[in-house]
Amino acid sequence: MLIRLDPASDAPLYEQIAGQLRRALAEGTVSAGERLPTARDLASGLGVNMHTVLRAYQTLRDEQLVEMRRSRGVVVTAEATERVQLSELARSLVHEARRAGLHDAEIRTLLEAQL
């Protein structure tokens, strides 16, 4: 996986790291069951604070993309790739809907009609 940080960007560093990891999952350069570098390692490689990386990892854990265990480190969950691809689909759906002039309420109705 390749992580690219833009220090000049408005997006917070942790969000950039999380975003790059999501992209790596979607592209398949990180696969299910794989162990990610420790927060300390990633932080020193990127030249950022360890807590920044931990926050990125926690964000991914909340999205159920990784598991964090004291003994095993940060491990990609089995369903991570699928979840990332689904949220990519949702993102492009919302993008297309907005481009077509739909309001948020209308997009929700559209989705609920399919459920």
Partner: peptide
């Protein structure tokens, strides 16, 4: 300006 890290 970008910072890069690659891991496998």
């Amino acid at each position: 300006q970008d910072v890069l890290m690659w891991h496998r």
